[in-house]
Design a protein around this nucleic acid. Sequence first.
DNA 1: TTGTCAATTGTCAGCGGCTGTCACTAGCCT
DNA 2: AGGCTAGTGACAGCCGCTGACAATTGACAA
Lengths: 208, 208
Amino acid sequence: METLRERKKQRTREALLRAALELFTTRGYERTTIDDVADAVGVSQRTFFRYFAGKEEAAFAVQDLVEERFVAAVRARPAGETPLEALRHALTEGWDRLSEDVEDVVPVELYLRMYRLIESTPVLLAAHLRRSADTEDRIARVLAEREGLDVDADPRPRIAVAAFGGVMRVTERQWSLGEDFSLAAIRALTTAYLDQVGPALTGNWRAL
Amino acid sequence: METLRERKKQRTREALLRAALELFTTRGYERTTIDDVADAVGVSQRTFFRYFAGKEEAAFAVQDLVEERFVAAVRARPAGETPLEALRHALTEGWDRLSEDVEDVVPVELYLRMYRLIESTPVLLAAHLRRSADTEDRIARVLAEREGLDVDADPRPRIAVAAFGGVMRVTERQWSLGEDFSLAAIRALTTAYLDQVGPALTGNWRAL
DNA sequence: TTGTCAATTGTCAGCGGCTGTCACTAGCCT
DNA sequence: AGGCTAGTGACAGCCGCTGACAATTGACAA
């Protein structure tokens, strides 16, 4: 049983987040003022900053949730899988559950629009890449633990995750530049690109 | 023969860059004000912004130069090398020439200090990662051209570069966290980590 | 050398992100 | 009902950054 106060706070935060993403994706990130967001909700600018550390944090609120799920999914993979199998399966499984997880917070369609905006807004892309780096670090730790290794002594977990992450970046980018902005599209790209890692790294591309 | 005006401009820009990097690396990036930099050189804040598009651009001025050289080095690699050989050789060759290239602008030691600051300052790391993404895109185009492929049709150039770039990121990170901040140290790390890509991606780490 | 023109700079005003402060309001709890 | 405190709004102010305009300084020709 939650108190009225808490429910009110929850609603304010949700309203701010929704208004922010809606304005960002329609008007553009830079062209949206915190005052715009606050006004849309009927709250002072100062209040926005009591719920979000900054403009950026609002933009990534949903993305944070998704990445959290991904880390958990990797951790939950059966020990029998090799590190790369675990990553790959956690990823595809993630796409399948994404709708349900996200829909509690905002419409999935809004999330996907925001995702594309991140990709096309330099300052947001920069923030995204840094956050991804943090996530990759956490995943490297998970993999190391699965394999009983010390992340700081053995570079292989980080290297594997970094290579994997690099491929994911290319996937995101291609997806955001394409025409099909569905979950199915990004899932298809993911598997296709992961299948290309071997060929891309070994040898001579002209041979094929 | 360059005009006095041009020489003056050149000196102002150089002074601003030096003052900025010096202040950034001693006082910290966020704790350094543009006014601090401008005052240190004896010009107005407005003038700083006439030489640099923003605080960030000053922080990355030298790094830009280094990455430019790297792209050129990849382009100059003999056609016989496989894509990954070309990347690797361009990289190690880059470390060798770095001192000479950088020293024209600022002391190498200052550049290395700045490089570490970038790693440890979130907002700078974010900017660095985004710039790296741009550079990787350009390199993917170079590789595709070398192999006679269409970057937008064949994902392998981008995937290979992304994986390679991921490993470089891990290298940079480890170097900046270590104790030996010499060029020799980062060169050694680079080759060691690149040798680990194969083992890290194939199979089972416990077997070794 | 001097006067004219153009490039460079300083000053000022202002916007937007963000923070500290403080008084006020509204929910909580006895 | 009344005291307590979490949450809010209003205000002031810092910093990054930009536009506008006037003042200055070098370039170049007469």
